[in-house]
Each structure stands twice: as C-alpha cells, then as structure tokens.
C-alpha cells in the first residue's frame, strides 16, 4: 500500500507544469483515473493523478500550485517519494463497449489522467477523441502525445492556441455516446448535463487520509446522501454527484 518511488526524469512541459517520471518497486497494472497520495509538503499527503504507467514507470504531470507541488517539482533523479496507493476508482475503460464513441474532455490540471485513459482505450481498440482546454498557449502540454493516440482538439480561453474558448466550444455532443472528463469544477459542471448518454467525471477535492476515513472530501449526491471523493471516486457517473 505504501511504496517508495524513485524519480527517473523530471522536465518542465509548460509554464509552471512539470512531468515527473518515477520507477515503481515493481511492474504494475493500474486502472486509469486512480491516484497516488504522495508524501510531499510539510505534513499532509497530496493526491496526484496518474498520467501514465508503462512497465515499472509511472508518470505524474502537475502544476505548481501550493507547497506540496512546488516541493514535488524540485525533486531530482534518484530522489525517493513515499507513495500511498494507487487509491480510488478510475474510468471504466474495461467496461465500455468496443464500439463506444468516446470523447475525453480535460481542463488544465485535469488533463493528465486522460492521457493514460486514452492510451488504455486505444490499446483496447476503442476509437476516441480528446478535447483539451487550457487558459493560454504557454500552458498547453502533452498535445503531441495525445495526437499520437487519436484526434485531439486544443482550446484556449484567450485563443492563443487552438480554438478560442472553453472545452465546450469544441464539443459536439451528438458525435459521442460516452464522455470521460477531468478538470476544474466549472468545467465539470458545464459538461455534467450535456446530452451524451454515459458521462463519467473525475472530481477534485481537498483530501485528508485518502482512504475514506476522515470525511474531508465528501461530495453531496442527489438522493441527499454523500460520496467520498477519495474512496468512492474520484471518478463518478455524472448523475451521481452534485457539483
């Protein structure tokens, strides 16, 4: 459950965004959409989504926002990270029909887990497209990596790259029957009720324990109850959660 990861490479991939590739103690097959709870920062762990797993290598892509991610971005090859996980439940890549028409919609720091998700879908022979939203051209990352997997559209809020506007500016719901999305809450809200039959949203929340015990990351549900982002999610059916 707790494993030591060893940093292999680190590179800056966009303004304030870092790619960190680490070696796992052993080869792992991890469901896309799950996360690792990394012990960086002064005290609490940081939930970081998994951007890729290949053999015994795991990739994290993250933006430097707070103390934890700043510390993570300063790690160098050979440094070790105490990782709790993988935790949570990911996107149902093994349960979607082979003929499904899937669109992956990512916004900013929500883009990383969709890369691994798309790779796994393509491995299964499922055709899918990606729409990636960023604020400006210098924030765009992994565009070429996504294009290598399938059709990819980039949007930027200021129009400096790709289509001007939010991800919804590029999304044609009638072309798809399944949507996988990860991104900031306003973006998730904008796709939550869009007319696509199956919608799965990966939501973000400040977490404590990461294993469902502390009730820090609850999200209300339409039936008046709640789900825990860390252990019931972070991926939910769109109709399961109130955002």
């Amino acid at each position: 459950m707790i494993q030591l990861l060893t940093v292999v490479t680190r590179r800056q991939i966009a303004t304030g965004a870092t790619e960190l590739i680490c070696r796992l103690p052993e080869v792992a097959d991890i469901e896309p959409g799950r996360f690792m709870h990394l012990r960086v920062g002064p005290l609490l762990r940081r939930p970081i989504s998994i951007a890729n797993v290949e053999g015994d290598l795991i990739t994290f892509l993250f933006k430097e926002i707070g103390q934890g991610t700043k510390e993570l971005a300063r790690l160098r090859p050979g440094d070790q990270i105490d990782a709790l996980g993988p935790l949570g439940n990911g996107f149902p890549v093994h349960h979607v029909a082979r003929e499904a028409r899937i669109v992956l919609v990512g916004g900013g720091i929500g883009v990383p887990p969709l890369y691994y998700t798309m790779r796994k879908l393509v491995e299964r022979g499922i055709a899918c497209e990606a729409i990636l939203g960023f604020d400006t051209a210098s924030s765009v990352f992994y565009e070429d990596e996504f294009r290598a997997l399938g059709p990819t559209t980039v949007t930027t809020v200021d129009g400096t790259a790709g289509i001007r506007g939010f991800v919804t500016a590029a999304l044609e719901p009638n072309r798809f029957d399944t949507l996988f999305a990860c991104g900031p809450e306003p973006m998730l809200r904008s796709v939550q009720h869009i007319s696509i039959e199956h919608k799965f949203l990966s939501i973000e929340n400040r977490m404590g324990c990461g294993i469902g015990a502390c009730f820090a990351c609850v999200c209300p549900t339409p039936d008046g109850h709640y789900v825990k982002t860390c252990s019931d999610g972070p991926v939910f059916r769109a109709e399961e959660v109130i955002l």
Binding site: P42, L43, L44, N205, R206, C214, F215, A216, C217, V218
Partner: peptide, 9 residues
C-alpha cells in the same frame, strides 16, 4: 467543503 487545510506542521 473544503473541510481541510494544511498549515505549518
């Protein structure tokens, strides 16, 4: 939520 926030130690 948010229900947690970190501070110095």
């Amino acid at each position: 939520t948010p229900r947690v926030a970190e501070s110095g130690m």
